[in-house]
């Protein structure tokens, strides 16, 4: 119903949030983005409004969705650029990563609702996230690329560090845990709780009152979650607690199931694995797989990870 370029303008806007980024990524002018977007909204009789920082499509968009499916299939099969985005967790790891045949988005999502809607709707083609946060959706397929330890990190001088080798999981419950990003790793949070962590803690309680003179600020006592690859540990003055948690995380590539075995998915996986191997070189507690593992729906991440270890 519309040309490839015309629908791409609308989709890039919905995906990348601003006309400017859409124009930059598509290599066209902003007026072209806005003209094509208007053509799409008129033709498909929809409206797009920005809500909470993201564009939302209002009206009956069944016809638009149907047309988009055809365009998506077309770009996969005709070597046109595909669209990749990832969770905020991945942002540091993906810096400088520019897979051929793919366009990388903002990689700044803190929750999963939006990116999942984008990938299910065919607005983006691949989504990088971490287990235990794999989408349980029969229309989506996840490939596991790596597995890594989950660490707790604290500021230098934190009382827990003084315990040294005597540190046990029981000690951790007394200290606040930095809230997880809104909407993010629900499964991760659950895992932490079932590990006895933050059992008496809830998000609101972590924002304590300002310290009086002589008291230690709550934020100085707060523990945070990190993986060997994630930013907080590398970039800040924080240090890893010498304790191992009964939890693991995995990097996942999610695509719509019809593209799970497409050669272009295989090519992206290959490029991602090579990149992750470079990033992980010399780091402990992370394993980048030789070959990505197809995640079986319903299986626990641990089971998948165990399969990967074999």
């Amino acid at each position: 119903m519309v040309s490839i370029d015309c629908l791409a303008a609308l989709d890039y806007l919905l995906w990348l949030r601003t006309g400017r980024r859409a124009a930059d990524h598509l290599g066209v002018s902003q007026p072209t983005i806005s003209r094509n977007t208007r053509h799409c909204t008129e033709l498909f009789n929809i409206r797009v409004v920005k809500k909470g920082g993201e564009w939302e499509v209002l009206g009956n968009h069944a016809l638009l969705d149907a047309e988009r499916r055809v365009h998506q299939r077309y770009r996969w099969d005709h070597h046109a650029p595909l669209r990749l985005d990832g969770h905020d967790w991945m942002a540091d790891n993906l810096q400088g990563f520019q897979p051929s045949g793919w366009i990388k988005g903002n990689v700044d999502y803190r929750d999963h609702t939006r990116p999942l809607a984008l990938i299910k709707g065919g607005i983006i083609d691949a989504w990088l996230c971490s287990d235990p946060d794999r989408p349980e959706d029969p229309g989506l397929t996840a490939w596991q690329l790596s597995r890594s330890r989950i660490d707790l990190v604290v500021r230098h001088g934190h009382p827990l560090l003084e315990l040294g080798d005597h540190l046990s999981l029981d000690n951790l419950g007394h200290y606040p845990l930095m809230p997880l990003p809104e909407g993010a790793p629900a499964a991760l949070e659950q895992g932490l709780r079932s590990a006895g962590l933050a059992s008496s803690w809830d998000r609101a309680a972590t924002i304590g009152p300002s310290p009086r003179p002589g008291q230690v600020a709550t934020e100085d006592l707060t523990m945070a979650i990190a993986s060997p690859l994630t930013g907080p540990l590398q970039a800040s003055d924080m240090v890893r607690l010498p304790i191992s948690l009964p939890l693991e995380q995995a990097d996942l590539l999610v695509v719509r199931s019809e593209f799970a075995h497409h050669p272009r998915t295989a090519s992206l996986i290959e490029q991602l694995l090579a990149h992750l191997r470079t990033v992980a070189a010399g780091l402990e507690g992370i394993t980048v797989f030789d070959q990505a593992l197809l995640c079986t729906p319903g299986a626990t991440p641990a089971a998948t990870a165990a399969a990967g270890a074999r």
């Binding site: 119903m1 016809l63 149907a66 047309e67 299939r73």
Partner: peptide, 18 residues
């Protein structure tokens, strides 16, 4: 293949009254 996929969308448009 793609013509047929697109025809499906256009048929949907006709049934929607376009």
């Amino acid at each position: 293949t793609f013509l047929q996929l697109e025809r499906e969308v256009h048929q949907m448009a006709r049934w929607l009254g376009h």
